[in-house]
């Protein structure tokens, strides 16, 4: 499923006389099956952009196309769109409301019009997918740990069987192992053909998992390309308050200390290790 935007713009009223543009003339194509990382510092328009992509906000100008169809067109079916795109908000564990985990995950599929048994079937599948055990299905969401609750919330979106999954800071507040588990879940989903759009503050996470990175600044697309391409623009990134992944700075430090080393295209720890080895031999 292809997601495309054309000149997408969103303005909101603020205290100043002119409306603020949170998203400003953004155009891009996300082909099916991609793992896209969106980075940008707080207030760069990331959250607004994904809400536009999911039809939760109406654009002030421009269009969002899902498989070539305008999702804001009058006769376009919302149900069809929801089946296409799923969105996981920041701290999604706070949106759980049912008395049991299973019932909560069934909420989405039931809204899509599935019968009880069918909804339960997809819910069970989604819960297993995120690593919740069967004996926990009848527990109240409040009996789980924070990390598990977040998985249940993600299952609630997965159960709607979207082709495109948007996640806003899904690793926020998790411990290192929890972060790793969450990221590998995304890798798995992506391997099964799902488009993943990951919003993150962590350059390291995005660098290690995404196949394409989009950098937003002041509502505009600032850089867009493969991780190595994007992180080649270290200076520009630093100018807008972002940074390259730590691995790059490690090599840069080594180079400054006087060791001859190639620092370009350093994105992950493994990149750094292989380059240091090469320069030592």
């Amino acid at each position: 499923m292809e997601l495309k935007t054309e000149n997408l713009t969103y303005e909101y009223e603020s205290n100043s006389a002119t409306p603020t543009r949170a998203v400003d003339g953004v155009s891009f194509v996300i082909p099916g099956g991609e793992f896209l990382g969106i980075v940008g510092h707080t207030g760069s328009g990331k959250t607004t952009l994904v809400q536009l992509l999911d039809g939760l906000l109406k654009p002030s100008a421009g269009t969002v196309y899902l498989d070539g169809e305008d999702i804001n067109a009058k006769n376009y079916s919302r149900k069809k769109m929801r089946a296409g795109i799923g969105i996981v908000f920041q701290y999604p564990e706070y949106q759980l409301f049912e008395s049991t985990i299973l019932k909560d995950v069934c909420f989405g599929p039931k809204n899509q019009g599935l019968k009880d048994e069918e909804a339960e079937k997809v819910a069970v599948e989604a819960l297993k997918r995120v690593g919740i055990k069967e004996e926990q299905f009848e527990l109240s969401p409040f009996e789980l740990s924070g990390g598990q609750r977040r998985r249940v919330a993600i299952a609630g979106v997965l159960a709607m069987q979207p082709k495109i999954l948007i996640l806003d800071e899904p690793t926020a507040g998790l411990d290192p192992a929890g972060r790793e588990e969450m990221l590998s879940l995304m890798d798995e989903l992506n391997r099964d053909g799902m488009t993943i759009i990951l919003i993150s503050h962590s350059m390291e996470d995005v660098a290690a998992h995404a196949s394409r990175i989009m950098v937003l600044d002041k509502g505009k697309v600032f850089l867009d390309g493969a991780p190595a391409e994007v992180f080649a623009h270290v200076e520009e990134l630093e100018n807008i308050g972002l940074a390259a992944p730590e691995a790059y700075y490690i090599l840069e430090e080594i180079r400054k200390a006087g060791l001859e080393i190639e620092t370009e295209n350093t994105v992950t720890v493994e990149d750094a290790v292989s380059k240091i080895k090469k320069s030592l031999c």
Partner: peptide, 23 residues
């Protein structure tokens, strides 16, 4: 640290991996 669901700082991770590679 891994056993306790933690990890290493980035530079330490790189150093540790390099050690594994014989440096």
């Amino acid at each position: 640290l891994t056993k306790h669901r933690l990890t290493l700082p980035m530079a330490t991770q790189v150093a540790y991996r390099l050690k594994e590679e014989g440096i």
